[in-house]
Write a protein that binds this DNA or RNA. Structure first.
Length: 482
DNA sequence: AAAAAAC
């Protein structure tokens, strides 16, 4: 165990770190900080929730020359939310050194961004698309950059940003420091490290599997039609303080959040089709605890750092094991405990086994929660609520009414009725989700007259002309491979 | 096949 005090940090940075409440460095911070301070290129292979941002952020800030009024550092991130979050943390860490980290991403008014860029922030945290846009407009001059960080590089790869990243890397000075962080190291990423990094140090934080042990992983085999009830039962039996529910499509997220809010849960949905303002607002409400349930597509799976998420629900099984790892990694952060439930339809059981195999972890099977258990949970919540109300006091003006009611009904009846009143509505509302979100196409799905289905039967996964990770066929890239 | 990301 290493203390930040022992890491030879700049006084101003150390002060910020301590003010943020950190005294001990996490394993990845302990290893990464010295290398980066020396100016070395580095590949960091670490799972989420390990303190990665500070691991590259602290030395990045240290290496910034505040005398020079130019942009010196660039962090590229896969999603807008992540860019925002990283910038926020860098601003906190760099506060006393007087460093500004500016988030730059799409969906924001470009004029305002250009104005902000004129302040010459020392660090830019960007999503690739908008950064490229600024490069073309010459509102960002990549020539002044000295340090580049590729955060969640495997995600940027699987989202198809890899060519953008290569374009950007080709534009920045050769004399620079490049850091790459990634949970996994697919081949295509290795070629980036080979072409654009100089003799990088590799720092891997060892762990048995890809998942964090503080997360309890369970799965429930549940038919598509019973998913919504099952979810509601789970939420009532073991109410989460803060939870994220992942759905497979944007439409699905809309429907699910609508359905849950109709039956009284404090919930909002978030996905990429919402306007950026809306996305930011929902996230703020979730972080503040105004809502305790966030229904999301995989937009929220990556890097999103909200402390105190106690439960993650995979309402729909994730597409691949990487998505699974990222999703459940939203809980159990910073060593806290978390539970991840995964819903699996009977026909998806095989896919679940694949995920277990790749992540080298075992999910515990759990049987379907029952209506009776859910009701017991709802009553328990009502009891807690009543206790809390008694504890808080401030109901003296009801004394007279209380006396009258007592004469009329007697104590037991009244308390029971009060509890009943505070109990969440039972399932009288008939809410349904229109979309089925099973991974394999439905048998009945009408595919036109190609008749290909027959010919493909039984081959599936073993087909050697399969797609690569990005889902592209070989040779169809815009640029030829080098 | 879906999601994310630039206008």
């Amino acid at each position: 165990m290493t203390l930040f005090k022992e890491l030879n940090l700049d006084q101003q940075i150390l002060r910020a770190v301590e003010q943020m409440g950190f005294t001990e460095a996490t394993p990845i911070q302990e290893k990464v900080i010295p290398f980066v301070k020396e100016g070395k290129d580095l590949i960091g292979q670490a799972q989420t929730g390990t303190g990665k941002t500070a691991a590259f952020g602290i030395p990045l800030l240290e290496n910034i020359d505040t005398e020079e009024k130019v942009t010196q550092g660039l962090v590229l991130a896969p999603t807008r939310e992540l860019a925002n979050q990283v910038a926020e943390e860098l601003n906190k860490l760099g506060r006393f050194k007087g460093i500004e980290a500016l988030p730059i991403y799409g969906g924001q008014e470009i004029g305002r961004q250009i104005k902000a860029l004129k302040r010459r922030p020392q660090i830019i945290v960007a999503t690739p698309g908008r950064f490229m846009d600024h490069m073309r407009r010459k509102t960002i001059r990549p020539q002044t950059l000295k340090m580049i960080v590729l955060d969640e590089a495997d995600e940027m790869l699987s989202m198809g940003f890899i060519e953008d990243i290569e374009t950007i890397l080709a534009e920045v000075p050769k004399e620079r420091q490049t850091l790459l962080f990634s949970a996994t190291m697919p081949k295509r990423l290795q070629s980036v490290t080979k072409n654009f990094m100089k003799d990088p140090e590799v720092v891997a934080i060892k762990s048995k599997g890809l998942t964090v042990s503080s997360i309890e992983q369970r799965y429930i085999e549940v038919p598509e039609k019973q998913k919504l009830d099952t979810l509601r039962y789970l939420l009532d039996i073991d109410p989460p303080e803060l939870s994220i529910i992942f759905g497979r499509t944007k439409r699905r997220v809309d429907e699910l959040s609508e359905a849950l809010s109709q039956v009284g849960y404090a919930v909002e949905g978030i996905h990429g089709d919402l306007r950026q303002e809306r996305r930011d607002k929902v996230l703020r409400k979730f972080k503040k605890g105004t809502i305790n349930i966030l229904v999301a597509t995989d937009v929220a799976a990556r890097g999103l750092d909200v402390t105190g998420v106690t439960h993650v629900y995979n309402f729909d099984l994730p597409q691949d094991s990487e998505s699974y790892v990222h999703r459940i990694g939203r809980t159990g952060r910073a060593g806290e405990k978390g539970v991840a439930f995964t819903f699996v339809t009977p026909r998806e059981m095989e896919h679940l086994k694949d995920i277990e195999a790749t992540t080298k972890s075992k999910m515990k099977r759990q049987s379907l929660p029952t209506y009776a258990e859910a009701m017991a949970g709802r009553y328990q919540q009502a009891i807690d609520q009543l206790r809390e109300t008694v504890r808080k006091g401030g109901y003296e003006d009801l004394d007279e009414a209380a006396k009258g009611l007592l004469d009329e009904y007697g104590a037991e009846t009244l308390v029971a009725a009060a509890l009943k009143m505070a109990t969440k509505e039972p399932d009288d509302k008939n809410i349904k989700l229109t979309e089925e979100a099973s991974l394999r196409p439905k048998k009945s799905s009408f595919r036109g007259k190609s008749g290909n289905n027959k010919g493909n039967k039984g081959r599936g996964r073993n087909n050697k002309f399969s797609f690569d990770k990005q889902g592209r066929k070989g040779g169809r890239d815009r640029k030829a491979r080098r």
